[in-house]
Amino acid sequence: MTSLLYKDWSIIKKTRALYFSVLYFSLIMPSFQNMDFFGKSFLANSYYIFIIYLLFSYLTAYDYKYNSDNFIPAFPVTKKQIVAARYVFVALTFAACLVLQSVVRIVILVLKGQDINIMNIMDYGQAAILILVFSLYFGIVLPLYYKLGYQKLRLLMIGAAVISGTVSSVLSEVGLDMNRPLVMLFAVIISAVIYYFSFTISVNIYKNGN
């Protein structure tokens, strides 16, 4: 599995995906400064989906271009590991975005001379909504990717990314109360179940693929 993750990371490093991610991040960073606006910004919410979408679509495009489905399974890995690595990569990217946003938030708090505590370095309600939207988006997109392939899915992916960003913003805007710990926990458990269920479907599709 680590060999597959290293492969994905090597592709991302060599392509322009990272530059675009950093550029996009620096463009939306000003919206992070407004702490009240922070959890409800369309930009901030879309940022997660867009960055993961960007890295995922670079990976799948390069896999498609170089026919990696024709040689990666020939290495000493199982098809289940190949699919698992893709799910882990996407989840790690999401986690990295959360961490990065928190780091920016801490820097802003320091610059403003405010106290830093566990409650103000992250908007946990927003994070719970994002985890839910993330698991729904990739829970649907990844099995479709293994079923239909990159070519048929690429337009659908960007459309779904925009919709997911909008949905998560709307959920934040309408004031869905996700800040209660039990609600957050429930959202995380539901997300994990969706993601795992999606993974088993993808493994099945990929194992039986031709």
Binding site: T2, S3, Y6, K7, S10, I11, K14, T15, Y62, Y66, N67, S68, N70, F71, F75, P76, V77
Partner: peptide, 19 residues
């Protein structure tokens, strides 16, 4: 196929070596 051809041979071998 010669793997991911946009990489140099050493980088590609670095990926393969981990398998």
């Amino acid at each position: 196929n010669a793997f991911y051809e946009f990489m140099n041979a050493k980088e590609m071998a670095g990926i393969i070596s981990r398998f």
